[in-house]
Amino acid sequence: MASYGVARSNDLLAKPCAPMPVARPELPTAEALLPYLRRLDETRWYSNFGPLLTEFEARLADRFGPQTHVVTCANATQGLTLCLQAMDLPQGSLCALPAYTFVATAHAVIAAGLVPYFLDVDPDTWMLQPQTVRDALQGAPGPISAAILVAPFGLMPDLAPWLALREETGLQVLLDAAAAFDDLQAAPVPAVVSLHATKVLGIGEGGFLATTDDILAQRVRQRTTYGFRGSRESHIPATNAKLSEYAGAVGLAALDGWPHNRLRWLRTAQAVRAALLHLPQVGFQPGWGANWVTSVCSVRLPDGAAAAVEEKLNARGVETRRWWGLGCHTNPAFAGCPHGDLTETDRLGASVIGLPFAIDLDFEQIGAVASALAESLDALGPPPPPEGS
């Protein structure tokens, strides 16, 4: 059997780990919320863009440039849907998106009246590339009106080539930045961020659009409020996707704690990286835990090894999760959607797993995961020799 140089005792390997969940979210404490809840008690303004939610949006906008507008919404899926609707795209046209993404991306496309067109991703960044979309314009089974790029698990793409694609082709471009709260610093491409409890900055349920396009921001806002535009008259078909003052309170408390919590995420991620240094067949996303933080630890294993490693880890009490499964296109909900060649997506789906990760994961837990993962990799047998050897 292959050995990856793991220093671990036989006693540690002989017994299973204490049950370890793959995620353990942490939202602001009751003490942190109390000042904002007292403000809510004083105003008795509980929804419809009261002072707490307005302040929360303003503080989010301050993270970006002075021309960036922020529109909060019930969740990021709604944010993607309403943004696509606000772009006035031809109904029934294709929306290009990566097959390697969470199902919410494709659900939003369908809810907006478009057809998902699944394309492959780059094997190193796990991202859809603008050139792939450009090439697909020629052979697509119908007109492509928009493209959604995804920041995989929080890793931000280079937006400059996407701006060039938009300028060159006229395609509308939208960024699904659900997990990229930390790394999203500007929004020249409209970006939708999730505020779900499982994200690094969570409020329970929620999301927001960040964009430099003030007209788009107004259109999305209108679609979150029954089509109202400064009156009680509904001007367009819309929905109710507002956040409440309670959500605003949680958001403000979360922002108060963000600088400290970001350091906690960094510290934990760096401890995980250090614990797995001796496992050369475990690959991290570029910059994970060093340049940017996120709330999950998705690692790439040897090709096709995910199922076998997961089985062994789970037997040891280490919970895992393939957050994006085998690729969005494999879900029955999207069985009839067109797609291109998905070789890299299929490879990633069979090789990427989520390991236990939380803001307060301690060294003992990290060590237990590292030992269990090393044992699981050893059981795979020796790695194949390098090409050309």
Results as ranks from 00 to 15, higher is better:
Met1Leu: 13
Met1Lys: 06
Ser3Val: 12
Val6Gln: 12
Ala7Val: 15
Arg8Asp: 09
Leu12Asn: 08
Leu13Asp: 13
Ala14Met: 11
Lys15Leu: 12
Cys17Val: 05
Pro19Leu: 14
Glu26Cys: 01
Glu42His: 07
Thr43Tyr: 06
Arg44Glu: 09
Phe49Arg: 10
Phe49His: 08
Leu52Tyr: 02
Phe56Ser: 01
Glu57Val: 09
Phe64Ser: 00
Phe64Glu: 00
Phe64Asp: 00
Pro66Ile: 02
Gln67Ser: 14
His69Asn: 04
Ala74Pro: 02
Ala74Ser: 11
Asn75Lys: 03
Ala76Gln: 11
Gln78Asp: 08
Thr81Phe: 01
Thr81Pro: 01
Met87Pro: 01
Pro98Arg: 03
Val103Tyr: 12
Ala108Glu: 12
Val115Cys: 05
Leu119Arg: 00
Asp122Ala: 07
Pro123Ser: 13
Gln131Tyr: 07
Gln138Glu: 10
Pro141Arg: 00
Pro152Ile: 02
Gly154Pro: 11
Leu155Pro: 01
Pro157Asn: 05
Asp158Trp: 07
Leu163Trp: 10
Leu163Cys: 14
Ala164Asp: 14
Thr169His: 00
Leu174Met: 10
Leu175Gly: 04
Ala180Cys: 12
Ala180Ile: 11
Phe181Ser: 04
Asp182Cys: 08
Asp183Cys: 08
Pro188Ala: 08
Val189Ile: 15
Val189Met: 04
Thr198Tyr: 05
Glu205Phe: 05
Gly206Ile: 06
Gly206Cys: 06
Gly207Arg: 05
Gly207Leu: 07
Asp213Thr: 07
Arg223Trp: 15
Ser234Tyr: 02
Pro237Leu: 09
Thr239Asp: 10
Ala241Tyr: 06
Ser244Trp: 05
Glu245Met: 06
Tyr246Cys: 01
Gly248Arg: 07
Gly248Glu: 08
Ala254Met: 09
Leu255Glu: 05
Leu255Met: 10
His260Thr: 11
Asn261Lys: 05
Arg262Phe: 06
Arg264Lys: 07
Ala269Ile: 11
Arg273Lys: 15
Ala274Pro: 03
Leu276Asn: 11
Leu276Tyr: 14
Gln285Arg: 09
Gly289Ser: 12
Thr294Ser: 15
Val299Pro: 04
Val299Tyr: 09
Ala306Asp: 12
Asn314Cys: 13
Val318Glu: 12
Val318Pro: 02
Trp323Lys: 04
Trp324Gly: 00
Cys328Met: 14
Asn331Thr: 04
Ala333Val: 06
Gly336Glu: 15
Thr343Asp: 14
Glu344Pro: 00
Gly349Cys: 11
Ala350Gly: 10
Ser351Lys: 02
Ile353Pro: 05
Gly354Ser: 13
Leu361Asp: 06
Leu361Gly: 04
Asp362Gly: 06
Asp362Lys: 06
Glu364Arg: 12
Gly367Cys: 08
Ala368Val: 02
Val369Pro: 00
Ala370His: 10
Ala374His: 06
Glu375Asn: 02
Ala379Ser: 14
Leu380Lys: 10
Gly381Trp: 04
Gly381Tyr: 04
Pro383His: 03
Pro384Trp: 08
Pro385Thr: 09
